[in-house]
């Protein structure tokens, strides 16, 4: 039996280990419900740099170094870097790769980038190409505002369905079972592996409003989750949690309803990183968080902790991305969306 299951899923023969993870986030994220969970918080949006773009790149570099350290790797151990972000030509990742000097594949999946990196990385390791690699994604509120929306000082009203781009970066160090050794820092806690990857298809139900990305991405998320369950012949009950990337409150409700329409009722098990990261009633973030950094810092902090501390045995992480640009939006195109899923499971 090969590794392919159904149409879109790969079951990894020798599931790679998540050897180390590091998350770093901005001040607003630090004030949110998960503030205590992140490995590091930056004091302000610039963090000593001259431009916000430089800050975002520094966030990513810091996260990658942190993940390697957590995995007890020495410099030069990481054989490959899979990195991406939201900016044009993924400059945060490019400049971070320049600073790190690790062989580098730049990837783009909008806000699904963390899941895309984890999935690609796990497949590359399982394929035997490398033994150690780092997958990472970053976003920064101000760099995203000026590229996708409007200048930061423009006095505009945000609609209630708008999401707040997260300032943050997360990095995951993946290792093949052959080279994996349990880091000293994780003594007494569980190892976590990546067992399945479901590659998403672009789904577009005609949402054109760039201020309402949750609604645009919900069908893609639902499609990937349902396909994954079908491909693996599993049910929702096989997972302790199904975590979507950053649909936000609006998209989360839509995704839940779309799944229910197909007869799948996830109940409390369906979570969303965009909903979890902010307290909407207190933080004025409207529909919740978004951006590559959002799902990266949530999945690699609190949710990974729940797996390591044996609260969860297995979770499905579905990174969701809105694959549009301001240009396509102005030209009247609707927003194509994608969801990539990876299964994170406690190793023995």
């Amino acid at each position: 039996m090969g590794k392919k299951r159904g149409k879109q899923t790969f079951a990894l023969a020798a599931p790679p280990y998540l050897a180390g993870a590091y998350t770093i986030a901005g001040t607003k994220e630090g004030e949110g419900p998960l503030g205590e969970c992140f490995d590091q918080l930056i004091p302000d949006a610039l963090w000593g740099e001259t431009t916000w773009e430089k800050t975002e790149s520094k966030l990513m570099t810091t996260a990658v170094r942190g993940a390697c350290q957590r995995a007890d790797w020495t410099e030069g151990d990481a054989e490959l870097l899979l990195a991406g972000d939201l900016l044009n030509q993924t400059i945060s990742a490019n400049f971070s790769a320049r600073a790190l000097g690790i062989p580098f594949f730049g990837i783009f999946g909008a806000c699904s980038t963390m899941a895309e990196g984890l999935g690609l990385g796990a497949m590359l390791i399982d394929g035997g190409y490398v033994d150690r690699l780092v997958a990472t994604a970053s976003s920064h509120h101000e760099t995203a505002e000026r590229q996708f929306r409007s200048p930061n000082e423009l006095g505009v009203q945000r609609p209630p369905e708008a999401q707040w781009t997260v300032t943050g970066a997360g990095a995951a160090a993946l290792a093949s079972p052959a080279v994996y050794h349990h880091p000293a820092s994780l003594a007494g806690r569980s190892a976590v592996t990546v067992t399945h990857v479901t590659v998403g298809k672009v789904v577009d139900l005609g949402v054109k409003d760039a201020g309402d990305m949750g609604s645009a991405m919900a069908p893609a998320a639902a499609h990937t989750i349902l396909t994954h369950l079908h491909d693996t012949e599993r049910t929702v009950g096989d997972y302790d949690a199904i975590v979507t990337g950053d649909l936000g409150h609006v998209g989360h409700a839509a995704c839940r309803a779309l799944m229910a329409a197909e007869g799948v009722v996830p109940g409390e098990r369906l979570l969303d990183c965009g909903v979890m990261i902010f307290d909407a009633s207190r933080q004025d973030t409207h529909a919740g968080g978004s951006g590559c950094g959002c799902s990266a810092v949530v999945i690699l902090s609190e949710l990974l902790r729940r797996l390591r501390d044996r609260c969860y045995r297995r979770l499905l992480f579905v990174g969701t991305g809105a694959l549009f640009s301001p240009m396509s939006s102005q030209q009247g195109e609707s927003i194509p969306a994608i969801g990539h899923a990876v299964v994170l499971e406690r190793g023995e």
Binding site: E161, G206, A254, A257
Partner: peptide, 21 residues
């Protein structure tokens, strides 16, 4: 999935109840 066959119009109506006021 059946929702894949939906038109943008059907999806828009579906979303109506979910949008915050």
């Amino acid at each position: 999935f059946s929702f894949e066959q939906w038109t943008p119009k059907v999806y828009r109506r579906f979303l109506q109840s979910m949008k915050p006021k």
